[in-house]
Simulated scan of single mutants.
Amino acid sequence: MLIDAVPTNPVPTTLLIERSADRVHVQLHRPEVRNAIDQTMIDELHSVCDELEREPRILILSGSNGVFASGADIAELRERRSTDALKGINSGLFSRIARLPMPVIAALDGWALGGGAELAYAADFRIASTTVRLGNPETALGILPAAGALWRLAQLVGEPVAKQIILAGRILTAGEALAVHLVTEIHESVDLLAAAHALADRIGAQDPLATRLAKEVFHAPLDAHPRVDNAAQAILFESPEKFARMDAFLARKKRS
């Protein structure tokens, strides 16, 4: 049930935000520039991260007017210099989104290019509409995709496909993105948000603490395993929710 559809204070100017008990839906909303990511949007997404770090919930990211995000705001990007690059303006935000305690779902419609694609790569789940176009055309503009594509994309689709996208400017269609597992579902645009919420429902049916710890351990460095797995399991083995859920399972099995 929707419990709060009022944006945070101060009122965001580039985002539309809906909150419910177990999730927050953030819609990128700069339709006049195809949801290009500017500094204001970065700052407002940081505020969303503040909220979700304090009160962990599932995050759904979507676009508006048939576009996820066409990339970084080129007019703003044109004026950035070397000192701005070293600040990691976009990469810092996207890494923060990737580290959020609960899963992040990116619902991709239309253009998801450049920084928009890199924002999607930071999500735990990517689902797409039939109209999606995913890629990183930064080198055509004399820069490189420094907000995650140069390392996240190879992890997601493998080095050969990642190099086609980054070094040769390949833009993936929905079917191509599905074939390389960059997205896991394709829907008509009109059904995309419902599919994102259906996925959030499946995530929400799991134990929140187990989900949070599983995400954290999943992203732990390789040399930390299995120590971190065992430490997380030790916490869950003492969790009241573990006993409640296992007791319910055993009761259902006994009745069947």
Score class of each variant (00 low, 15 high):
P240S: 03
L52G: 03
P137Q: 07
E185T: 13
D201M: 05
L52K: 04
S82D: 13
L193H: 11
R19N: 15
I97P: 03
I58T: 00
G114Y: 12
G142L: 04
L213W: 03
G115Q: 08
H29Y: 15
E159Y: 13
A98Y: 06
T184M: 07
V26N: 03
I97M: 07
M1L: 14
A196F: 08
I58L: 10
Q39S: 13
E118H: 08
P10Q: 04
A224N: 07
I165L: 10
G169Q: 07
R152P: 01
P240C: 05
A112R: 00
L178H: 05
H187S: 00
V104W: 05
Q164G: 01
D38H: 11
E185M: 13
A224L: 05
R202H: 11
E185Y: 12
P56T: 08
G135K: 02
Q155H: 15
P101F: 01
P221G: 02
Q233F: 15
D38M: 05
I42R: 12
T139F: 12
Q39C: 06
A248I: 10
P10L: 01
I203F: 09
L61E: 05
A195E: 06
R212C: 04
P221T: 00
A154Q: 14
V11A: 15
R54A: 10
I165D: 06
R152E: 07
C49W: 00
V217N: 06
G63V: 07
L193M: 14
E79P: 11
D207R: 07
Q155D: 15
L86E: 11
T13M: 07
A117Y: 05
T130G: 01
L213N: 03
R57S: 07
G71K: 05
T211C: 06
V228I: 09
L93W: 01
R227Q: 15
P226T: 01
I37N: 02
T139L: 10
F94R: 03
R19E: 15
P12Y: 06
Q164R: 10
G71N: 04
R19K: 15
A244V: 08
G92Q: 08
I74F: 13
F249A: 14
V180R: 09
P103I: 07
